[in-house]
Computed example of a mutant assay.
Amino acid sequence: MRDAKTPESQIRHAVHLCIDMQNIFAPGGLWETPWMEKVLPTVAAIVSRHQDRTIFTRFITPLNPEDRPGQWQVYFQRWRQANRLQLPPSALDLVPALARYVPPARVVDKPAYAAFSNPRLAATLAEKSIGTVAITGAETDVCVLSTVLSAVDLGFRIVIVEDALCSSSDAGHDALMTMYRMRFHGQVDLVTAEGLAEFWRE
């Protein structure tokens, strides 16, 4: 498995896909992710270097549970305060440290965990002949995981920036890092932000 020594050619013509760095997951948010403050400077540094090649995703909750199918209804009945009729609109905004980069960075809204649950994202990447996605954001073991697996299925080369991810669960984060190293070599590379800066040549 390649780590920070990933060949430069593997990180050319990439897009930085930053997952769900929103106020709802920030300190004081409904779904507070304690690590977010720690990794935010690292994520912001990556965005600042690749502003026009960054796509932010936002997890958009429904107005009411009944607006979503199947088990999502059960989920949002449990989390009624997360439904948009009760949630302050600003909760779904990007955190200010990242929102300042839009534009030129772009935002794609999604109704589920995976970034590719919005089909517009895959279509946009295909139109631009993007074959590699560098992934940062929240949470390692939920929306990031779902996005990574979707990207694998779609055939993308995936570069996970391991010091630019955050989770509410240390155990969940560590388990995912182990899984990527053991089970997804050849499709997923783990790098540090420093390694990404060294090897990503637009």
Results as ranks from 00 to 15, higher is better:
M1E: 12
R2W: 10
R2H: 11
D3A: 10
K5L: 15
I11C: 13
H13S: 14
H13D: 14
C18M: 08
C18I: 15
I19E: 00
M21F: 06
M21E: 08
Q22A: 11
Q22C: 14
N23W: 12
I24N: 04
F25C: 14
G29E: 08
G29P: 05
E32R: 06
W35N: 08
E37R: 09
P41Q: 06
P41H: 07
A44Y: 01
A44L: 03
I46L: 15
D52C: 03
R53N: 02
F56Y: 06
T57V: 10
I60D: 04
I60C: 00
T61C: 07
P62M: 02
P65T: 13
G70Y: 11
Q73D: 04
Q73R: 15
V74G: 03
Q81S: 10
N83S: 10
R84G: 01
L85C: 11
S90C: 07
S90N: 09
L92P: 02
D93W: 13
L94H: 07
V95P: 08
L98R: 07
A99W: 01
V102C: 05
V102F: 00
P103I: 05
P103N: 06
R106D: 02
R106V: 12
Y113C: 10
A114V: 06
A114R: 06
F116T: 06
S117M: 12
S117I: 14
N118V: 13
P119E: 05
P119H: 10
T124N: 02
L125C: 02
L125P: 05
G131F: 00
T132D: 02
V133W: 00
V142Q: 10
V142F: 12
L145E: 12
S146P: 01
V148N: 02
S150F: 04
L154G: 00
G155H: 04
I160Y: 01
S168C: 12
D170C: 03
D170N: 10
H173V: 01
H173N: 07
M177L: 15
T178M: 03
R181T: 15
R181K: 12
M182N: 09
R183I: 03
G186A: 03
Q187W: 02
V188R: 00
L190T: 13
V191E: 02
E194N: 11
G195H: 05
L196V: 15
E198S: 09
E198Y: 02
E198V: 09
